[in-house]
Deep mutational scan, measured.
Amino acid sequence: MEVVDPQQLGMFTEGELMSVGMDTFIHRIDSTEVIYQPRRKRAKLIGKYLMGDLLGEGSYGKVKEVLDSETLCRRAVKILKKKKLRRIPNGEANVKKEIQLLRRLRHKNVIQLVDVLYNEEKQKMYMVMEYCVCGMQEMLDSVPEKRFPVCQAHGYFCQLIDGLEYLHSQGIVHKDIKPGNLLLTTGGTLKISDLGVAEALHPFAADDTCRTSQGSPAFQPPEIANGLDTFSGFKVDIWSAGVTLYNITTGLYPFEGDNIYKLFENIGKGSYAIPGDCGPPLSDLLKGMLEYEPAKRFSIRQIRQHSWFRKKHPPAEAPVPIPPSPDTKDRWRSMTVVPYLEDLHGADEDEDLFDIEDDIIYTQDFTVPGQVPEEEASHNGQRRGLPKAVCMNGTEAAQLSTKSRAEGRAPNPARKACSASSKIRRLSACKQQ
């Protein structure tokens, strides 16, 4: 084909351009004929944790799935940006308080904090938690009735009371019990989460009196709706648990309003109706937990002794299953770290194939690490110290990083047969305790 000078094309009309061969290198194709290559998922490591896909996002930050490269346990990490926390009232204080509380709590029905990582340079905090497959609110939203069968609701409620009793025994008032803060594992274990607005009572406090509340409006008791200066913290949790039980068994809320002012007005009056299909035992329990006067409201001991709580409820309806993943529609909620794991395991070791967030990740503290002497050669063979940054567990980050890069360049065919977990650990520049 004859090559045409581009400067001469402006002298031709459209018809003349076609005659000189423009149609031979300008093609129009339908979008259905285009085959897009999927974007390669680059592996990203935060300390010893391999990052997966997004699980959810809230006002405080994002939650992603991660894999512990040492234990191969599935975890969830809450990623918090200090810049964003400053824009939220009491944001930083709530996060630090939640970390302090979770560090000393150990119960099967309370979410466990596994690790805390802090990135000084990017001003990011990573709260590594045990993995929960789904939230209770997500399960309720997945069915038209917006409720659980009585047998399933009873099982979840009993676990909620177990976890709540443990928190109260530790002198902690949750203040925000609701389905949105109750998570579930694949085995059906309920976990109380989000202790950001919780309050730890003084060890020598005479009672459970509280003065502040930041919980969700629909789950607040009349004493808070009416603006009382002080109130019983434990009875606030009992009320919120009662509203939660009402919601998961009926699909409704005892109090509603077009806006928060109308909602608080209705809560302050204390008038509500219980659907007739709840039955006398459940209705009596709800009335005891939603008692207007805090002094007359049920205690956890009274809830445990109630006939509806103690009764064994046979399954009359099919239980609400864990819904498919909202993004991938995966009904099994498979591990989202698998594509990243395959990338590390299947590809040659190259620095361009993975990302390490930083050479140094500070753990379990908000301060910069200490310094240790770096050896410097002298005339008599002895070495003197220069400062060298280290990880919180004493690992020399720069030395590990250099060693990792040197190993990656060394030709050794046997290394390709290593397991995925050992490869992740070798790529991680800074081991965590």
Score class of each variant (00 low, 15 high):
Leu9Tyr: 14
Leu101Trp: 00
Pro6Ile: 15
Glu376Asp: 01
Lys96Arg: 08
Thr336Glu: 15
Ile260Ala: 02
Phe309Arg: 01
Lys78Asp: 00
Asp348Asn: 03
Glu407Ile: 15
Arg383Ser: 10
Leu117Gln: 10
Gln214Gly: 14
Thr185Val: 05
Leu190Ser: 01
Thr186Val: 09
Ile356Pro: 15
Val143Ile: 07
Asp343Cys: 12
Lys84Pro: 13
Gly346Ile: 08
Gly385Val: 02
Leu344Asp: 12
Ala398Trp: 05
Asp277Ser: 05
Met289Tyr: 00
Arg331Leu: 08
Gln371Arg: 13
Met127His: 15
Val66Thr: 07
Thr336Tyr: 08
Ala316Ser: 04
Phe148Pro: 00
Glu293His: 06
Ala153Leu: 01
His202Asp: 04
Met335Ser: 13
Ser193Gly: 03
Gln399Tyr: 11
Ile322Asn: 14
Pro387Ala: 10
Thr250Glu: 05
Glu14Asp: 08
Glu291Arg: 13
Leu263Met: 05
His306Ser: 13
Ser401Pro: 06
Arg86Glu: 15
Val243Cys: 06
Phe366Leu: 08
Ile161Phe: 00
Gly91His: 02
Asn181Val: 00
Thr209Ile: 03
Arg409Phe: 04
Leu164Cys: 08
Pro413Gly: 14
Lys82Val: 05
Ser325Thr: 08
Gly171Val: 09
Met51Val: 03
Gly10Val: 05
Asp352His: 09
Ile424Gly: 03
Glu121Tyr: 10
Asn266Leu: 03
Phe148His: 00
Glu349Val: 08
Glu138Ser: 09
Gly56Thr: 01
Cys73Ile: 03
Pro149Trp: 03
Thr185Asp: 02
Leu85Trp: 08
Ile360Asn: 07
Val390Asp: 11
Lys62Ala: 15
Met51Lys: 10
Tyr126Ser: 03
Cys418Arg: 13
Tyr292Met: 15
Val338Ala: 14
Pro323Ala: 07
Glu256Tyr: 11
Met335Trp: 02
Gln305Tyr: 13
Glu98Tyr: 01
Pro387Gly: 14
Asp348Ala: 13
Ser232Ile: 11
Glu342Ser: 11
Thr395Lys: 02
Gly15Cys: 07
Asp358Gly: 07
Ile260Arg: 15
Gln7Leu: 09
Gln214Val: 05
Met136Asn: 00
Ile248Val: 04
Ile35Asn: 06
Leu72Asn: 01
Phe231Pro: 05
Cys278Tyr: 02
Pro323Phe: 10
Pro413Ala: 12
Ser334Gln: 13
Gly288Met: 09
Leu85Tyr: 01
Ile192Thr: 00
Ala417Asn: 13
Asn181Phe: 00
Gly91Asn: 11
Met289Leu: 04
Gly163Ala: 06
Ala206Thr: 02
Thr24Cys: 08
Ala429Gly: 07
Leu183Ala: 03
Thr249Trp: 01
Asn94Met: 02
His27Ala: 08
Lys97Gln: 03
Asp350Ile: 09
Arg104Thr: 10
Ile111Leu: 02
Asn90Lys: 00
Pro217Phe: 12
His306Pro: 01
Phe219Arg: 01
Trp239Pro: 00
Asn109Arg: 03
Thr185Ile: 02
Ser19Tyr: 06
Pro324His: 12
Tyr272Val: 03
Phe255Gly: 02
Glu265Gly: 05
Leu54Thr: 12
Gly346Ala: 14
Phe148Gly: 00
Arg106Thr: 15
Glu349Met: 10
Ile35Ala: 11
Asp352Gln: 04
Arg383Pro: 10
Tyr340Cys: 15
Val20Thr: 14
Asn181Met: 00
Lys122Asp: 13
Ala410Phe: 11
Lys81Gly: 06
Cys210Ala: 10
Ala389Ile: 14
Ile161Val: 02
Met335Ile: 08
Ala43Met: 14
Cys418Gly: 15
Gly61Cys: 07
Ile79Val: 01
Ala377Tyr: 12
Asp53Tyr: 11
Phe204Gly: 10
Asp115Met: 06
Ala429Cys: 15
Val114Tyr: 14
Tyr272Gly: 08
Cys73Arg: 08
Glu130Val: 02
Thr328Ile: 09
Lys175Thr: 06
Glu199Tyr: 06
Pro373Gly: 13
Lys44Cys: 07
Asp53Ala: 06
Glu396Phe: 11
Gly61Ser: 05
Met129Val: 01
Glu70Val: 09
Gly215Gln: 01
Gln37Trp: 01
Asn119Lys: 08
Gly56Val: 01
Lys41Leu: 09
Glu374Thr: 13
Pro179Ser: 03
Thr186Tyr: 07
Ile99Trp: 03
Val116Ser: 05
Ser378Met: 07
Thr244Gln: 00
Lys97Ser: 03
Arg426Gly: 07
Ala93Gly: 03
Ala397Phe: 10
His202Ala: 08
Gln170Ala: 05
Gln371Ser: 10
Leu353Trp: 07
Glu291Ala: 12
Val34Asp: 03
Asp194Tyr: 00
Gly385Gln: 14
Tyr49Asp: 01
Val150His: 09
Val390Pro: 13
Pro321Trp: 14
Met392Val: 13
Pro221Val: 06
Arg147Ile: 09
Leu117Tyr: 13
Leu80Met: 02
Asn393Leu: 08
Ala225Arg: 06
Pro144Thr: 08
Glu130Gln: 05
Thr244Val: 07
Val110Trp: 02
Thr363Arg: 07
Val243Ile: 11
Ala241Cys: 08
Thr336Val: 12
Lys388His: 07
Lys287Arg: 02
Cys418His: 08
Gly408Ala: 15
Leu140Ala: 02
Thr230Gly: 02
Lys81Asn: 11
Gly408Asn: 13
Thr402Met: 09
Ala206Asp: 06
Tyr272Ala: 10
Tyr362Leu: 08
Asn412Cys: 07
Asn380Tyr: 07
Val390Trp: 02
Arg211Met: 11
Ala200Met: 15
Met18Thr: 15
Pro221Tyr: 00
Phe354Pro: 11
Phe366Trp: 14
Arg333Pro: 15
Gly251Asp: 04
Pro179Gly: 01
Gly394Val: 09
Val4His: 15
Glu374Ile: 12
Ser421Leu: 15
Cys418Leu: 12
Asn119Glu: 06
Leu282Tyr: 06
Leu344Ile: 07
Ala397Arg: 12
Glu130Tyr: 01
Thr395His: 13
Pro315Gly: 09
Leu45Asp: 10
Lys262Val: 09
Thr185Tyr: 05
Glu65Pro: 03
Lys62Asn: 14
Ile238Val: 08
Arg304Phe: 01
Met335His: 00
Ser69Ala: 07
Phe366Asp: 14
Glu291Lys: 09
Asp352Met: 08
Asp194Cys: 00
Pro315Thr: 08
Tyr156Asp: 01
Val133Leu: 05
